[in-house]
């Protein structure tokens, strides 16, 4: 039984022949498309390391079957920096030392981008902390993460205003 799945990953279309319906989006990215930036921390939706944007929304890619998302648009950590310029969230993570070992970082960054896009938290630290609580960091970089998300929220809003003006 072989099934074909078409996915747009970081703006590039991929048609994948799936010989196995069990493949999750996470394992598809990591093991079949060599997009290993997305990490597997628990494989059960309990840590957030595998967070990607699926049709624009942040989700745990470990709990999504690839076969079920035929036609989906996916963004991963590898697709953020355009022409070598870091995304504002990426730059803010470096500036605020928002990671240590770096393993949860791709998931944190994708989650932060989802959070900012949702527009519910704004620059309220408590709402940012709550909104980022689906991403565990065992190194304990939460303070830097919160600061980075707030700074990126601010700078992205300013950029958007400038573009509009």
């Amino acid at each position: 039984m072989s099934m074909s799945v078409t996915l747009t990953v970081n703006r590039v279309p991929h048609t994948v022949q799936l010989d196995d319906p069990r493949v999750t989006l996470l394992d598809l990215l990591r093991e079949r498309l060599d997009l290993t930036g997305t990490k597997k921390g628990c494989d059960r939706g309990q840590c957030g390391a595998c967070t990607i944007l699926l049709d624009g929304r942040r989700v745990n890619s470990c709990l999504a079957l690839a076969i079920s998302h035929d036609g989906a648009e996916i963004q991963t950590i590898e697709g953020l920096a355009e022409g070598g310029a870091l995304h504002p969230v990426q730059a803010a993570f470096i500036a605020h030392d928002a990671f240590q070992c770096g393993f949860c970082t791709p998931g944190q960054i994708m989650s932060a981008i989802g959070l900012i896009d949702e527009g519910q938290a704004g620059e309220d630290p408590e709402r940012v902390r709550e909104g980022m609580s689906g991403n565990l960091c065992r190194c304990g970089a939460y303070r830097g993460i919160t600061e980075a998300v707030i700074e990126a929220t601010r700078s992205m809003a300013e950029d958007a205003q400038e573009k509009a003006a």
């Binding site: 939706g45 957030g48 967070t51 699926l54 929304r57 942040r58 989700v59 745990n60 709990l63 999504a64 989650s111 989802g114 959070l115 949702e118 909104g131 609580s133 689906g134 991403n135």
Partner: peptide, 9 residues
Amino acid sequence: GASAQLRNA
């Protein structure tokens, strides 16, 4: 409930 990621799915 759960996390933002899980609630989105």
